[in-house]
């Protein structure tokens, strides 16, 4: 890991925690801490929560082109606070980081943006909804109708998102526990976006359609000190049901899952109900990363093999991680997204 990466890892702890950097788990100091029982309020909670240390607006999408080629897309805006306050001008302690990616079966395009808050270069407004960093934006008249844009040195995309189902919450009404010691975050999702738009790749423009899943999460200390990283799955089955599951790797693994039925009813499953085990590893960017998984949620009869569309979907960003589209086979068929942090380095 180069030094710049180290700095940003320290600076932007959302991923850094997952990477197991010492000390970050300790210093909550004056930041607000999630508590159970708080009712999420919309549209206000779509906006930023500067009193909390970290926050993200995390969208992933599985798409197909006119010839049936599968594609994946990621758009993420991270907020990281050096201190629990907001403000105008350069003095604001709020920092922003954007990650965008497009994954094809053969290639993976990545871009990253960094910005200071307080000057208008990056930020989030709740209503009408707008989240942006530089020329990247996710915005629309409301949270159900959004336009999403991003560009890098060798790719760009511009797609429209239309929600076909309700917002859903994870854990206890959005209070999502992340370790046996009680670390937690607020966590809700909109997993029911229909997507249509255009990918601009080195070969030219490609019209695409598909489904997108937006995760919203904020906290001040999401991981326990011994946790080194996570494996996060968002799976959309052909039945219309969906499932979110994650494994937080530590001295003992901590897992959680949310079953989302096609009509938007959710069931949260506690630690241990969801199980995921690596089946096959792939070397990418000089480290071994599992790219085929067996994921099970026996309570719902789920026993599937999750296979990366492109094992090389490595996010070579300030804080590197793996994030890419997957296909699902076994007890259920479908597509989804996989994020893996804390491997190597």
């Amino acid at each position: 890991m180069n030094a710049r990466t180290f700095i940003l890892a320290v600076l932007l702890p959302m991923q850094a925690m997952a990477q197991g950097f010492a000390g970050l788990g300790a210093a909550v100091e004056d930041f607000a801490v999630p508590v159970p029982g708080r009712v999420l309020e919309f549209p206000v909670d779509h906006g930023a929560h500067p009193a909390y240390r970290i926050e993200w607006w995390y969208l992933t999408a599985n798409m197909t082109g006119p010839d049936g080629t599968p594609y994946g897309l990621q758009w993420t805006l991270f907020r990281s606070a050096l201190a629990p306050r907001d403000g105008q001008g350069w003095e604001t302690p709020q920092l922003w980081m954007g990650h965008a990616a497009v994954t094809t079966p053969e290639a993976h395009f990545v871009a990253e943006r960094l910005a200071r808050g307080g000057i208008g270069q990056a930020g989030v407004e709740a209503d009408p909804f707008s989240a942006w960093i530089d020329d990247w934006a996710m915005e629309g008249p409301d949270f159900d109708n959004l336009r999403l844009r991003a560009s890098g040195a060798d790719f760009a995309y511009d797609v429209a998102l239309r929600a076909t189902g309700p917002l859903i919450t994870h854990g206890q009404n959005g209070y999502s526990v992340k370790s046996a010691a009680g670390q937690a975050s607020y966590y809700y999702s909109q997993p029911f976006f229909d997507l249509a738009g255009t990918l601009t790749l080195p070969g030219g423009d490609i019209p695409v359609t598909g489904q997108a899943w937006l995760d919203r999460e904020w906290s001040s200390q999401p991981l326990a000190a011994d946790q080194s990283g996570w494996d996060w799955f968002s799976l959309s089955f052909e039945t219309g049901d969906k499932m979110m599951g994650f494994v937080l790797r530590g001295s003992t693994d901590y897992t959680a899952a949310t079953w989302i039925s096609a009509d938007g009813q959710t069931t949260a499953f506690p630690d241990g109900a969801f199980v995921a085990a690596p089946q096959e590893w792939h070397e990418v960017a000089g480290r071994e990363v599992p790219v085929i998984w067996r994921a099970r949620l026996p309570a719902r009869g789920v026993d599937v093999t999750v296979t990366a569309l492109n094992p090389g979907a490595w996010m070579q960003t300030s804080v590197p991680y793996w994030e890419g589209p997957v296909t699902i086979s076994g007890s259920h068929e479908g597509v989804g997204y996989l994020e893996m942090t804390g491997y190597g380095d």
């Binding site: 180069n2 030094a3 710049r4 180290f6 700095i7 940003l8 320290v10 600076l11 050096l82 201190a83 302690p93 920092l95 960094l114 910005a115 200071r116």
Partner: peptide, 26 residues
């Protein structure tokens, strides 16, 4: 300078060499 947007390697600030960006900014 604005260290978050400055192109890599710009300036001898050595921000990319382990300086405390947090202290630099806040």
């Amino acid at each position: 300078l604005e260290p978050l947007t400055a192109p890599g390697g710009l300036g001898p600030v050595r921000l990319d060499e382990g300086a405390d960006l947090g202290a630099f900014l806040s």
